[in-house]
């Protein structure tokens, strides 16, 4: 069963002479329960693909199918219950005036849950924060703790597909290890499918089963992680990227 199918996806910003094509004709599929990586340097369009899927980049053409649902301009509420996103910078992705409790409570409320209190408690336990963090504000949390809150928020509607936009690139390596372990545990416990964007090949190889290498808005190569580990990239750009990462 395919969880995500992206066909001939084009994403652009601006119009007329100022038009910038950020993604050009991207094709890939992600199976249910799989973890798929998008790798590339800054400006390669990897994050833009995530934003197009989540509906944050309004100008796109092509086909996006999520869990059998074909997506149009407007996303139905059922979409947000299936797909959630974790952002790159945990310092920017939490409202500075909202406590952890408010962030999670509002999310649960918007998705129509009734037992909000019990669920907030469970979400905090799920991401390994515990109750003493429930009423804290973002400025009272470290980067890793904030990213855990952001992950809890993404998990709140019980999604099937999680879009991860460089979830650890703003964190220290020791914290990165904790968050990556948490993501692995959550995927196993909740049967999640991941689509992860990263510039770090070793992180992608740790989290993902397959990956696509992007350059200048195009996918140049799709390969599995075993091939990556054996340095068997076919496209010259992927090889170059691999060389630089060793």
């Amino acid at each position: 069963m395919k969880m995500l199918e992206v066909k001939a996806l084009n994403v652009w910003f601006g119009a007329g002479r100022d038009r910038v094509d950020a993604v050009k004709g991207a094709n890939f599929t992600v199976e249910e329960g799989e973890s798929f990586g998008l790798v590339g340097e800054s400006g390669s369009g990897k994050s833009t693909i995530l934003r197009a899927i989540s509906g944050l980049a309004p100008q796109w053409s092509g086909g996006i199918n999520v869990n059998g649902m074909s997506l149009g301009r407007r996303r139905p509420n059922a979409f947000y219950k299936t797909v959630q996103m974790v952002f790159q910078d945990p310092y920017a992705s939490l409202h500075p005036r909202h406590s952890v409790d408010q962030v999670l409570g509002e999310t649960l409320y918007l998705h129509g849950f009734r037992d909000i209190d019990a669920r907030v408690v469970r979400l905090l336990d799920d991401v390994g924060l515990g109750q003493k963090f429930r009423f804290r504000y973002p400025h009272q949390l470290s980067g890793g703790q904030r990213q855990r809150v952001a992950i809890a928020r993404a998990l709140a509607p019980e999604p099937k597909l999680l879009l991860l936009d460089e979830p650890t690139s703003a964190l220290d390596v020791s914290v990165q290890a904790e968050v990556l372990n948490l993501l692995a545990d959550l995927r196993a416990d909740h049967g999640l499918t991941y689509l992860m964007v990263s510039h770090d090949l070793s992180v992608v190889s740790h989290v993902c089963d397959r990956l696509a290498v992007m350059k200048d808005g195009e996918i140049v190569e799709v390969m599995d992680v075993a091939a990556l580990r054996q340095m068997r990239a076919t496209h010259p750009y992927s090889q170059q990227l691999l060389q630089a990462s060793i």
Binding site: S54, L56, M85, S93, H95, H111, A150, P157
Partner: peptide, 11 residues
């Protein structure tokens, strides 16, 4: 990002 995040909750 936090406004994007709440948009993704259907707000």
């Amino acid at each position: 990002d936090y406004i994007s995040a709440i948009k993704l909750q259907g707000a």
